[in-house]
Simulated scan of single mutants.
Amino acid sequence: MGEPQSLQGSPAERGRHAIQDVDIHAWSRRFGLLADPNRLEILLCLHRSPGISVRELAEATGRSENAVSQALRILRHENCIMSERIGRSVVNRLDDAVIHEILHNIGAEHG
């Protein structure tokens, strides 16, 4: 048998570096947002139709405006979306480049 590998080159050491090189908590929060079907549908709608209102999101997803508003509050709190008042309505846009890329990777296309 050959000489034992140094810890730096061992699989365990490389694994430790992989964990240290990534912001685990940020990724966990993002995946948590995407894991909820309601929020994922909303994010897909925002991706395809930037500037969509709460009423239009509710219509698109088949959910109540209240349920959509609650999901948007969570997404806004996590800095994933941007909401802007235009006249009497508030429009929403996806504002997270990483989530944007993830949506592309799962097959989401632009309108």
Rank of each mutant, 00 (worst) to 15 (best):
I19R: 02
I19N: 10
Q20R: 07
D21S: 13
V22D: 00
D23Y: 02
D23G: 01
H25Y: 12
S28I: 02
R29A: 00
R29M: 08
R29N: 03
R30C: 03
D36Y: 15
D36Q: 05
D36L: 02
P37W: 13
R39Q: 10
R39N: 07
E41S: 14
E41K: 11
I42K: 00
C45R: 12
L46C: 13
L46V: 11
H47M: 11
H47A: 06
H47G: 10
R48F: 02
R48W: 00
P50E: 05
I52G: 01
I52R: 03
V54F: 03
E56S: 00
L57E: 08
A58H: 03
T61D: 06
E65L: 04
A67L: 11
V68W: 09
S69P: 00
S69D: 08
Q70V: 05
A71L: 01
I74S: 07
L75A: 06
R76T: 09
R76W: 10
E78N: 00
N79W: 06
N79F: 15
I81E: 03
R85T: 12
R85E: 15
I86Y: 02
R88A: 15
S89K: 14
V90Q: 14
V90R: 11
V91S: 05
N92L: 07
N92E: 15
R93F: 13
L94K: 08
D95P: 04
D96N: 14
V98I: 09
H100C: 05
H100D: 13
E101P: 00
E101C: 04
L103Y: 05
H104W: 06
H104A: 11
H104Y: 08
I106E: 06
G107L: 14
G111K: 08
